[in-house]
């Protein structure tokens, strides 16, 4: 197993190198970013001075290799907009996004499993039809539209939930302010409900379908029939025999789903004025704040790599047939 982990970690270096190169090239395609940092009345000399100060005067390959060399030493550069260390800014925005993603994932998986199980158990009935219609709706509507509709209905009309904003939990916790973090928790959850549902609704729908089909397959297996013929209760058959095996593909999905949700928060963070990494990256791309975009790409890539690794390890643990 350790060889497997070491091999995966080595591969991750190549992945990180690749994604930073792609994002660097993509940001440079648009032309010289210097113009976004000078006044429209700046003279040629002033533009040249700023270009030099920002490091855009060097050839692209030199800029990239310098960047890579600095990253290797743990130096991610300063944000061009915030004028503060880029990694500090990214890590400052990350906890809010993690909160949102965990909430959305918990909501999506927590609801998808019972919905999927019930749809499978009541296959062909109105219960199944209703759940699958909801799943189709969830996979069809764009999450930003759902977010705006929720704001209008639950936020503005019913006044049940706050329209926008964020109350931090993880950040004070990471800073050692445990009491503050837990006193924030009810509000943190309260502010997460609408954006969390908007982000997680697509995953809920997709996973409900996945659990349903997985359950249907398992429920038709011989060992389930055997369990029933032994006189076990239906509850015991479903929970201890069927669901346990239907669970395997869901575990794989959970890990990937976290990454999917992490990438899917960009628009929702904007709609709900949620100060997370998605909105930060979106703004930084618009402002051509290359160091921040690069730092965020590295952080997100590392999260994806770690999640994939974790999924593989968990999968091996719960399915004895899988050998690493």
């Amino acid at each position: 197993m350790w060889t497997f982990i070491a091999r995966r970690l080595l591969q991750s270096v190549i992945v990180i190198f690749g994604v930073t190169l792609i994002s660097f090239v993509a940001l440079q395609i648009g032309g010289d970013p210097t113009y976004l940092f000078v006044s429209e009345r700046a003279t040629e000399e002033e533009i040249a001075m700023v270009r030099e100060a920002l490091g855009f005067d060097k050839p692209l390959h030199i800029q990239y290799l310098t960047y890579v060399a600095n990253v290797a030493q743990g130096e991610f550069g300063n944000s061009l907009s915030y004028r503060q260390p880029a990694m500090e800014i990214v890590l400052g925005a990350l906890p809010a996004t993690i909160e949102l993603t965990i909430f959305a994932l918990t909501f999506a998986i927590g609801m998808a499993i019972p919905f999927g199980v019930f749809a499978a158990l009541y296959r062909g009935t109105p219960v199944d039809g209703g759940i699958m219609t909801m799943a189709m709706f969830g996979q069809s509507v764009p999450n930003f539209w759902l977010g705006i509709m929720m704001i209008l209905f639950f936020g503005l009309y019913l006044r049940w939930f706050p329209i926008s904003g964020h109350v931090p939990f993880l950040m004070p916790l990471l800073q050692g302010e445990v009491a503050q973090a837990f006193s924030n928790l009810p509000q943190t959850l309260y502010y997460l409900i609408m954006p969390g549902i908007a982000v997680g609704f697509y995953s809920l729908s997709r996973n409900a379908r996945l659990v349903r089909s997985s359950m249907l397959e398992v429920l038709g297996q011989d060992y389930v029939r055997t369990a029933r013929s032994k006189g076990l209760t239906e509850r015991s058959v479903v929970v201890h025999h069927a669901l346990r095996n239907a669970w395997l593909p869901v575990v794989t999905m959970v890990g990937l789903e976290f990454g999917f949700l992490l990438g899917g928060v960009v628009v929702i963070e904007t709609v709900f004025s949620y100060p997370g990494i998605g909105r930060l990256v979106f703004n930084s791309i618009n402002q051509r704040d290359i160091p921040v975009v690069q730092a965020a790409v590295i952080v997100l890539s590392l999260i994806f790599i770690a999640l994939n690794l974790l999924v593989d390890l968990v999968y091996a643990k719960i399915d004895p047939r899988v050998k690493l």
């Binding site: 705006i148 704001i151 503005l156 329209i163």
Partner: peptide, 18 residues
Amino acid sequence: WRIIPEASTRSAELIAGN
């Protein structure tokens, strides 16, 4: 000063009195 990038969200917050 609250940062609310989305125009419809800003309007909703204003109408809600927040």
